[in-house]
Design a protein around this nucleic acid. Structure first.
Lengths: 342, 342
DNA sequence: TTATCTAGCTAATACGTATTAGCAAAAAGA
DNA sequence: TCTTTTTGCTAATACGTATTAGCTAGATAA
């Protein structure tokens, strides 16, 4: 590999000093920089012809910005099983970065540690960082909040020694709306399957559910995920639930399949609602009544927020984007048979 | 935030020089560094108590290479329709980069132009670049080959003013194997649907097909993609083809559907072979007899090759990875009825 | 006692960039 | 013509780390 070109080399080719190259590159107002057009053009020509780009590391040493946005994911961004989780987010991030003239640096250099502040994570190489993951490390979050490095989280985050800048989905009201819809359809024996604590997205769903349940009764709750579907269905049936809310699509799908095997009809005998949605519109299988998570829009808005923080030292912003309902076909009226037998 | 601690500060607290702090931190063999245990422990204590961590950016300044790999895609990587194409490749790249301690720079500056040498593409931010896409720009490829910037293409590429470093799929023998299998099953009237020129992957498939056809007859060839499936089927039927090879899965799927509508059985009346494979294992519909494209492995190997070029100025390598056959259920024996009526 | 060797550091400098004080020559003003 | 101002740069230095030649004091050998 040819040695990386330095400004010193460009200076030599253009017949000026390194300081002049730097001044030209940084396009200070002509009146300020005091470089005449002829000199500037000569230097720009050399830069163009050589493809020279300033070393981002050196620039960051002297506190310069590189128009690079870091992307840190607590899980690998592209593994087969995760591909559908991160892809829409990455699309949103890339779209915004592109429009704003920023390149994206995926901080993979840390290896398998998956810690923002792991030894080899060169967070500072980027001007700022978008952070994604199902579950954040709150110690790291607090450290980021306490520090001066600009970042934005995708997904709502509780305060961590101070307010966390984020763009999330407004899961609580979206959940409430689905609960209210179920109640409007006559459902009074309702169940909830999924975690109710831990990640903020989980807490929001439970909050929205609890707030909207009203005069309906929570006849069963399973604050867990990945339970054997048959067992889950047993609990739901023996509790006489007519409508069940799942936080995880995968759980809903498995239980729906078992219900079908047992001759239960969905939504005739049991309505199923998912507090989230299919990532892929063309996914096989049942279309569950749910709400749409605006992943791309969240990530896009987070990226734009980050750039505001990088460029203007903008104050902390916290934004929740609405989640539109998805009709699906798994929530239906309380049927007379269902009501009578329970 | 407290000002970032430097080694100079640690040195002051420990009563040594900055150079000593660095030597302690880098744990050179004691015999080499000549720092006695007492001094070392005193410095380590200060480091521990202050939580000092060396600035990765400053470290990189003195080491030269930035350990950044560019990723350039000739098509946008993340819009929904392309995600399935690029995701497995990106997984392979990420995996390798992670293992090798490199960060990945997504070059968004290309925007809608999708040119490596477009004005806003800051190629030289990275130490080297992996290049992906269905179709490459040969002018740019030639420029890369002529230049000194390390790159590796994913997918076989013809020479461009010199050999192109690449990792591709070995499509020709994989195609030949499928043709030989069809002949072994008795097929003698064979058809080919898809391009036979243009991209190297296309050329390799046609080459492998042509080489293996032997005493069988090419009774129909449609060197095009995206033809109306009914029209394609008409040509195949009137030519009396008993087995057809498609380069594009999408074309095969459409023709198979039309064949089914017409009461033709696959593979009973017409065998269909796809020279490639489903990207997603859980995709709906027919499982075609095909071969597996080792996308992840290709990208992983390309990334590793690139790092060899970046770190060791390694010579041009060109690697083709084998494509394992996928059984599927669309290729079957030449049936007596088929033979008799044609 | 003198000469030589060794241990324990440190001063200096490299890395590539951005910034700024300041120099020298040319231009403008008196 | 002399003085002041302006223009067009450049030398010097900061950033935080890693590296190494070299200094000094103490220990060892003659």
């Amino acid at each position: 590999m040819a040695k990386r070109l330095r400004q010193k080399d460009i200076a030599q080719l253009a017949g000026v000093s390194q300081a002049t190259v730097s001044l030209v590159l940084n396009a200070a107002p002509a009146t300020q920089a005091r470089i005449p057009a002829e000199t500037r053009e000569r230097v720009e020509k050399v830069i163009r012809e050589t493809g020279y780009v300033a070393d981002p590391v050196a620039r960051r040493m002297v506190k310069g910005l590189n128009r690079i946005l870091g992307v840190f994911t607590y899980e690998p961004a592209f593994p087969s099983e995760q591909a559908d989780f991160f892809t829409p987010f990455l699309f949103g991030i890339e779209e915004a970065a592109q429009a704003l003239g920023y390149d994206l640096l995926l901080l993979t250099g840390a290896g398998t540690q998956r810690k923002i502040f792991a030894e080899n994570v060169r967070l500072r190489l980027a001007d700022g960082c978008v952070i994604l993951g199902r579950k954040f490390d709150n110690t790291e979050l607090a450290r980021l909040v306490a520090g001066d490095f600009p970042f934005v989280a995708v997904g709502r985050r509780d305060d961590a020694g101070g307010p966390v800048p984020y763009v999330g989905g407004d899961y609580a009201p979206a959940t409430s709306a689905l609960v209210e819809r179920a109640r409007a359809l006559g459902h009074r024996r309702i169940a909830y399957v999924g975690l109710n604590e831990g990640a903020e997205s989980t807490i929001d769903r439970w909050y929205g559910f609890s707030r909207a349940i009203g005069d309906a009764e929570l006849v069963a709750s399973i604050f867990a995920v990945d339970r054997p579907p048959a067992e889950t269905l047993d609990i739901l049936v023996s509790a006489g639930a007519s409508c069940v809310f799942f936080t995880e699509l995968a759980d809903a799908m498995r239980v729906e399949a078992v219900a079908r095997e047992r001759g239960l009809s969905v939504p005739g005998d049991l309505s199923i609602v998912v507090l989230g949605n299919h990532i892929r519109a063309d996914e096989p299988g049942r279309r569950f009544t749910s709400f749409a998570i605006p992943r791309e829009a969240m990530a896009k808005a987070a990226t734009e927020m980050l750039v505001r923080r990088v460029e203007n030292d903008a104050p902390v912003e916290q934004l929740l984007l609405p989640c539109e309902p998805v009709e699906g076909d798994t929530l239906g009226p309380l049927s007379p048979k269902t009501k009578k037998t329970r």
